[in-house]
Nucleic acid binder design. Structure first.
Lengths: 302, 302
DNA sequence: TCAAAAGTGTTAGGTGTACACCCATGA
DNA sequence: TCATGGGTGTACACCTAACACTTTTGA
């Protein structure tokens, strides 16, 4: 924090005097933006009257109405103004793009590579928002020619592990696929993790990005990793559920995000302390009706 | 991402043309800094020839040589230049302040409240670095009149819990104490966590900060929380150990960071897969010599 | 009647905790 | 000799995976 310390006679004046004479304009500065990752759960198609609908993970993207990446899809976001905090900026953008307020929001990571925006130096602070499936009704903001929910999938294409004397190398190739009714976007993400002695080195690179603007495919990949890991040890998943839900619906959300099939019996027991019965039932299809639960307000997480 | 989209005829030109005519200078921008939290383990005093030295957690601070907060202590850090990434800036600062290279570094959080720096709007990206106790030899950088390791302690002063109909409120008052040979800095951190239905609300405020510049007491508190939670499910603690170490030394690091006493038998079994014997022994004091271990390069974390 | 989902009971295997106990050392 | 830490064995409590089984529904 040396900026400004070298103003005229910087020490032998009072702090008040210093601040009055401080000139902030001497250095060139990067621009700062927030980018939003708005996730929700949408229910897919029902195969027949008995089967439950398979839910899918949805992500909100905006079609770019200007250069660069004209016509491609990007995360909603925008510049941080001088008079709002980062989180205020994130909530403002979220409200502008979706009309949503007061939902789960979490700072994810700040992206600051030099060439990540071809216009100028842009540092972007990304936020993850989780929306209850019941309350989403999109309204495109003014600087977006189009907004749309995309269905998110991650596929492991290849995994190589090499164990040697002092450590190991793990390389993974993952395909990220985003689809809506008319379009399919994709990106190949290569990760390389080296462990040598105590030193651990992680590396991520994007190859073959199709239709996703900037480095946003990488940000989406990062967010999915975070979501996947946090669902294991927090109650974050409940932010994706409506107020009342069945345990099977909740289980499917866990399965989609973690990418693993779970055993119903074990899942129910694990969730037992986090939910309470409402007494109501989901009058259902050709099978036994299921109890509706709500989140237990007295739950202890961890 | 609308910045610049409204340049002259923004859509009906090519992306190349657009970028050539793009002018980045039209908006006022915040400044961006990186702040470093450099932690290490230092060994304290030995009570008598039998007892082991109690290690302590150390944090590197720099005494401010200019306004604002003249004479107070701050995290090492500095402005991010236009031609370096955030992580490059962090590594550069770290090297300048400590001479250290190639050590563990992790992005923590980005702080962007409007009034956090009295000079001008400053957004700060904080990084946590962990240093092996054996290799620290301080050298103060040019913009710091003084650099010093402080011993870190967190004390829970008060905890209030209130459970009501739809949720609960937990309030905690924690005292953060930083001491070196001659000075003692402190801050009271109040946290309030509200759970109501699905909505979880966390709030943190600083009261009575003594000798710590800017909002850095809050950043330190945040870093300690992160360190505490990550030590439970990652092998991050090994970055604080020298190449060869005894299991008791490792256990003491876990105890200091987690703030809990551990049972040696259980700890040794938990660590069994993460370490390998070197065959060497720490020729010791009035007790059985202890084996020296090193990190197992084939360890599986999680 | 029956496919599909809802929900319960039982068991086996693994993991963490507590504690007892022995070993080795140097002043 | 003995305080102190190094290190192992064992018993028990708890958690989880796996699977079998019963219940309930609408076409």
């Amino acid at each position: 924090m040396s900026h400004g310390d070298k103003a005229f006679d910087p020490v032998n004046i009072s702090e008040e005097e210093f601040l009055q004479t401080y000139d902030a304009g001497e250095y060139e500065r990067p621009s700062v933006t927030v980018d939003m990752l708005v996730f929700t759960i949408r229910s897919g198609e029902q195969e027949n009257y008995r089967k439950l609908a398979e839910p899918e993970l949805g992500l909100l993207l905006i079609r770019r109405g200007g250069h660069p990446y004209l016509g491609q899809w990007a995360l909603p976001g925008g510049f941080v103004s001088m008079h709002e905090s980062l989180e205020d900026a994130a909530r403002r953008e979220l409200h502008m793009e979706t009309g949503l307020d007061g939902i789960y929001l979490e700072q994810l990571y700040t992206w600051g590579d030099v060439g990540r925006d071809p216009r100028t130096r842009v540092i972007s602070c990304s936020y993850m928002a989780l929306v209850d499936s019941s309350e989403l009704e999109l309204q495109a903001g003014d600087d977006a020619s189009d907004a749309s929910w995309f269905w998110v999938e991650q596929k492991l294409i290849e995994e190589k592990r090499h164990i040697h004397e002092r450590g190991r190398v793990t390389e993974r190739r993952i395909q990220l696929v985003l689809s809506n009714e008319t379009e399919q976007l994709s990106a190949i993400v290569d990760t390389k993790e080296q462990v040598e002695g105590r030193v651990r080195n992680s590396n991520l690179s994007l190859v073959d990005v199709q239709g996703i603007a900037f480095d946003h495919a990488q940000i989406i990949h990062y967010a999915l990793e975070r979501l996947r890991s946090k669902i294991e040890y927090t109650d974050i998943a409940f932010n994706l559920m409506p107020e009342k839900f069945t345990l099977t619906a909740l289980q499917k959300v866990y399965e989609i995000i973690s990418g693993k099939k779970l055993l119903a019996a074990a899942f129910r027991r694990k969730m037992a302390d986090w939910v309470t019965e409402t007494g109501e039932y989901a009058s259902s299809a050709g099978h036994r009706p299921s109890r509706l639960y709500r989140l237990n307000p007295e739950r202890e997480v961890l």
